[in-house]
């Protein structure tokens, strides 16, 4: 009489269980990897070139100086300069811009510097306090399409808030500063 193993000791049970764990782990790793990938942009916009040409950040993202969002430029704003730029006619990427202008549509950009919906960030006080754009957004002279910067989480926010004047700490560490 063969003695049966308890079910949890049978090899094929263990193999299956191991496979399930692997699949789950793989899924999690893959998912986390995917969240960190850069989304596809409609136009491969070269930030480095525009910043290098001396255009200030606030020219295209003016909202940063007065309000919560920096904003993305309207198609007409791009076109304002580009209709006078010779390269607009030749570059294949810029032909996409021409197409949007002809269709009279906004360009469906995908913002990469984003926060979850339970975080309410406001650019204005940061710009007013003299925080430079590159402090948070990286050096745009070095990137073409905007890249997300990982780990821009609450600890990262607070690490900077903690360096401010001590009398401001109550305010700058208040939950309702960002969460409501």
């Amino acid at each position: 009489m063969k003695k049966t193993l308890p079910w949890w000791l049978r090899p094929w049970v263990r193999v299956t269980a191991g496979l399930i764990v692997l699949i789950l782990l793989g899924g999690a790793v893959g998912g986390i990897y995917l969240t960190q990938t850069v989304p596809q942009q409609p136009i491969q916009f070269p930030h480095n070139f525009h910043v290098g040409a001396g255009i200030p950040c606030l020219y295209c993202h003016p909202g940063a100086q007065w309000g919560p969002v920096a904003g993305l430029p309207s198609t007409q704003k791009c076109w304002g300069c580009h209709q006078q730029v010779a390269k607009t006619k030749t570059s294949p990427e810029l032909q996409k811009l021409v197409a949007y202008v002809e269709k009279g549509e906004g360009i469906p950009w995908v913002p990469v510097f984003i926060q979850p919906e339970f975080v309410h960030f406001n650019h204005r006080p940061h710009v007013a306090a003299g925080v430079a754009c590159e402090t948070c957004h990286g050096d745009m002279k070095k990137v073409t399409v905007a890249q997300p910067i990982p780990r821009q989480n609450m600890g990262w926010c607070l690490s900077c808030h903690a360096k401010q004047a001590p009398e401001k700490w109550t305010r700058l560490s208040d939950c309702s500063l960002c969460h409501y």
Partner: peptide, 15 residues
């Protein structure tokens, strides 16, 4: 559920 020292109100931090 925390107290806001700043606003002197009770906060609910949803996340």
């Amino acid at each position: 559920t925390v107290h806001s020292e700043e606003e002197q109100i009770n906060l609910q931090v949803y996340n």
